[in-house]
Design a protein around this nucleic acid. Structure first.
Length: 425
RNA sequence: GGAGAGGUGGCCGAGUGGUUUAAGGCGCAGCACUGGAAAUGCUGUAUAGGGGCAACUUUAUCGAGGGUUCGAAUCCCUCUCUCUCCGCCA
């Protein structure tokens, strides 16, 4: 969430920054609301101040006089009554105004970083580096063909259970998924991250806190009888983990790694990636998350990205690092580095991790602060997938495929999977 | 699902209508004492908004929202969360 004071005092600055995202933001009416709100606030404050003084006088009178029902008191009480009436009129106005303000402000995305490449959409993203040797041969199988041949998952049967875009992992597929989760959790928790396993259901307030609500209610599954949603990413429960806290600055940065299932409606993606493990309503993910000193989030962003990268390197999967342009940035992010893994069957890179610096955007929405030199300030939050499990499996299957139809398991994963090869039975 | 008890500052905890301007403690910071430290003593220490160059000042906030009252942490209503017992249950 953006700072209301900043909107009030410097609307042009806010508009200019937001418009870096590639579309025009006009906050004139919002700006007016903030001014109105301040005016009403001042009015209420001065009325309250006078009413308070009057109440004190009445209290003293009652204590000092032996007749608590005299007429002078009635006159004073009547005066107090008038204050109350006036104040309640203004408070009603303030309530309505506050709600409007809150609604409007929480729909505004974060400012893009000055460092982020300016651009309209994903075509303007900038490749920073490539790692590994992308397998570039013809007649390679897709991961869903490989999966079918080796009986690693079954999407047809999954429509019986739920509907399309769900998968049931079977045999070695299920085992490989489990191996990947454990592998990633071990690497990260040995690297200074505290492992968490959060609830998969989250409240509306939590989704609001990390930025998925109010704008993107269409992208998550909602429970009908409770104010709970299926979490679209562990970023949501992890942000909410420290909601309404003032964290000791000596404890920063707090680094968490969490495995969680993720649920997304994928509204508007009909027809895209309908096969395989790339785009599912439910997928597993190991997420990295930092709560950090607001002065140190730039270095932290590099660190969290390289921690995510380390997994791809250990699995020996070719990837590239992409700097997301302003027009393609997520709602809460000011700067995002995507890691894209090489999928040889389609001869392209696909996103497997998104590492974002949200600055104080989520911290302000969730009220997470720290004290620096006796001053209270919002902390910065960063998140990054480390990594998306399903897409990692897809990459392993495609990059590790052998001419005889078997799949070679990356060396680092063998101790977890228990075998160096997946063969047909 | 039924019955009951609760939610007070960074933490613990007192507080049943008017010097509560939220006691006391812990923690933290500064100072004193010390060769240095511990212990001790003194002082300070919530958050958000407004005004002011500043010292400072003012308003709100005791789970959330309404209400009663001149005045509410305290009384009433609604919601919410936590805990205990019973029931059900992996």
């Amino acid at each position: 969430m953006l700072d209301q004071k900043l909107i009030r005092e410097n609307p042009t600055f806010v508009e200019n920054n937001l418009s870096l995202r590639g579309k025009v933001y006009d906050i004139t009416s919002l700006h007016k609301l903030t001014l109105e709100r301040k005016e009403i606030d001042m009015e209420i404050s001065s009325l309250q101040s006078e009413s308070k003084k009057l109440s004190k006088i009445i209290g003293q009178e009652i204590r000092n006089s032996n007749n608590p029902n005299n007429q002078e008191l009635d006159v004073l009480k009547e005066k107090g009554n008038k204050f109350r009436t006036k104040i309640s009129i203004f408070e009603e106005k303030k309530r309505i105004l506050d709600k409007k303000l809150q609604d409007e402000i929480s729909k505004l995305p974060n400012f893009p970083s000055k460092e982020a490449p300016i651009g309209q959409n994903e075509n303007n993203n900038i490749q920073i580096k490539e790692w590994g040797n992308p397998l570039n041969k013809d007649n390679l199988k897709t991961h869903w063909e490989i999966g079918e041949n080796l009986n690693l998952f079954d999407s047809i049967k999954s429509t019986k259970i739920a509907k399309s875009r769900f998968i049931t992992l079977t045999g070695n597929g299920a085992k490989l998924e489990r191996a990947l989760i454990n592998f990633m959790l071990d690497i990260h928790s040995n690297n200074g991250y505290l492992e968490l396993m959060p609830p998969a259901l989250v409240s509306s307030e939590s989704l609001q806190g990390s930025g998925q609500l109010p704008k993107f209610s269409n992208e998550s599954f909602k429970c009908t009888n409770d104010d709970l949603w299926l979490s679209p990413t562990a970023e949501v429960p992890l942000t909410a983990f420290h909601k309404n806290e003032i964290i000791d600055s000596k404890a920063l940065p707090l680094k968490y790694v969490a495995y969680s299932p993720c649920f997304r409606r994928e509204a508007g993606s009909y027809g895209r990636d309908t096969k395989g493990l790339i785009r599912l309503h439910q997928f597993n993910k190991v997420e990295l998350y930092w709560f950090c000193d607001p002065n140190k989030s730039l270095e932290a962003h590099k660190a969290i990205t390289s921690d995510a990268e380390s997994i791809l390197k250990k699995l020996n999967l070719p990837y590239r690092l992409v700097d997301i342009c302003t027009g393609d940035l997520g709602f809460s992010s000011s700067r995002t580095f995507d890691l894209e893994v090489w999928l040889p069957s389609s001869k392209c890179y696909r996103e497997i991790s998104s590492c974002s610096n949200c600055l104080d955007f989520q911290a302000r929405r969730s009220s997470i602060r720290t004290k620096i030199d006796k001053k209270t300030s919002y902390i910065h939050t960063l998140n990054g997938s480390g990594l998306a499990i399903g897409r990692t499996m897809a990459a392993i299957l495609e990059n590790g495929q052998q001419t005889d139809g078997s799949v070679k398991i990356p060396d680092a994963l063998v101790p977890y999977f228990g075998s160096s090869l997946i063969k047909t039975n």
